[in-house]
Simulated scan of single mutants.
Amino acid sequence: MLTNQRQIHYDRQVAYWLLLCAAVIFGMIVLGGVTRLTGSGLSMVEWKPLMGIIPPLSEEAWLATFEKYRQFPEYQQVNRGMDLAGFKYIFMYEYLHRVLGRLIGVLYFLPMVYFAVKGRVRAGMMPRLWMLFLLGGCQGLLGWYMVKSGLVDNPRVSQYRLTSHLGLAFAIYAYMLWLAFDLLFSRGAASQQRGGKSLWLVALIYLMILSGGLVAGTRAGFAYSTWPLMGTTFIPPGLYSMSPAWLSAFEDITTVQFNHRIFAYILFAVVHAFALVVWRRGLSGQGRVAVLLLLAALWLQVILGISTLLLHVPVWLAASHQGGAVVLLSAALYCAHVLRRQAG
């Protein structure tokens, strides 16, 4: 039977491994944004889960791969006339994105098996680790399901599938980070026995991220490059003009961008009100740091979002905005975890 000190040591090992995996997923989310923003996501028209890790290695192989791409709508409608050098550029982004996904699977699965065999996983934690692994597999399938939607008549992936793919990536990241916090700060399942009231803010930020997925999927970010007005007015004409009206929230670019902006304003106000309320309750040093980190992450994300709009969605800035969403969610998770511990 493990001594308490040894269990703490093992908990830290597992937590650091989870944090490493979460950091790589962070990179994966940002790279996914770059892949989308550079129009690279449909450059690989086949899904080979095992052999797909080997890229074209000869000029003949590159030409054959390029010829396959030329048979699909994106080349015929968007990139007609693209040369082989241009194809290699977009292909490599999508290739790296897929290879990194496989790397995450290996980086997660092999240490998980090692820790389990060595008896270093705390009782009750193993089912959660398996759940993360299964969710990772589902993410790979969902990614291909998303890509397939752009290989038909319309060379654009479905905004619904893109948002689902993005949302699952953030959910995996968030759950992984939370388990690591449990192991590092709560010695296992202790914090899970306390109320989950502090997680409502995390849920609100997650919904905001899904809203951003719809903006990305509909390319609504390119529609209005002005702030705080949309064009010449705060409330643009044509909102909810589709029939039925609710469909506009998912498919009309004006409504999608307007909703994302309003959601951002609401979240900005709610986070500041939340910070003020919890600060007045008298926080410990760690609690104060957690709230300040949350506010800093929020302001960073707001600045990145406004700058992305005003500069008409440059790749580096839009990718930074997507990364900022990860930072904000991380800060909210950390703040929630700290507050739960202090409440207990």
Rank of each mutant, 00 (worst) to 15 (best):
L57P: 06
I53H: 08
W62M: 01
I53Q: 09
S43Y: 05
L50F: 08
V45W: 07
A64K: 14
W47H: 07
Y69P: 02
S43F: 02
I53F: 08
S58K: 04
E60T: 10
K48R: 15
P49H: 00
E60D: 14
P49E: 08
W62E: 06
F72T: 05
Q76N: 11
K48H: 15
L42D: 14
L42Y: 13
I53G: 11
E67D: 13
G52L: 06
E74T: 14
E59T: 07
P73R: 09
G41V: 05
G41W: 05
R70I: 03
E67Y: 01
Q76F: 10
E59C: 00
L42V: 15
T65K: 05
E74L: 12
S58F: 00
T65R: 07
F72D: 00
E59K: 13
I53A: 15
S43Q: 08
Q76M: 14
P56W: 00
P55R: 10
P56Y: 00
G41F: 09
T65H: 01
P56M: 02
G41D: 06
Y69G: 01
W62Y: 05
I53E: 10
K68Y: 04
W47S: 11
E74S: 12
Y69H: 04
L42C: 12
R70N: 09
R70K: 15
V45F: 06
L57C: 02
Y69W: 02
K48P: 05
Y69A: 07
S58N: 03
F72C: 00
S58A: 02
E60F: 05
G41E: 06
P73E: 06
W62C: 04
V45N: 08
I53L: 12
Y75K: 10
V45D: 11
Q71Y: 01
M44P: 02
A64S: 13
E60V: 09
I54V: 15
S43E: 04
R70M: 09
T65D: 13
E59H: 11
P49T: 02
K48D: 10
A61W: 06
T65S: 05
E59M: 12
P49N: 02
Y69D: 04
E46W: 00
K68S: 08
L42W: 12
V45T: 15
L63P: 00
P55I: 07
P56I: 03
A64Y: 04
L63I: 00
E60M: 07
M44R: 00
L50W: 10
Y75R: 07
P55V: 01
P73W: 11
K48T: 14
E59I: 03
E67T: 12
G41Y: 07
Y69L: 08
P55S: 08
L57N: 10
Y69I: 02
Q71D: 10
L57D: 09
F66I: 04
W62Q: 11
A64E: 15
L63D: 06
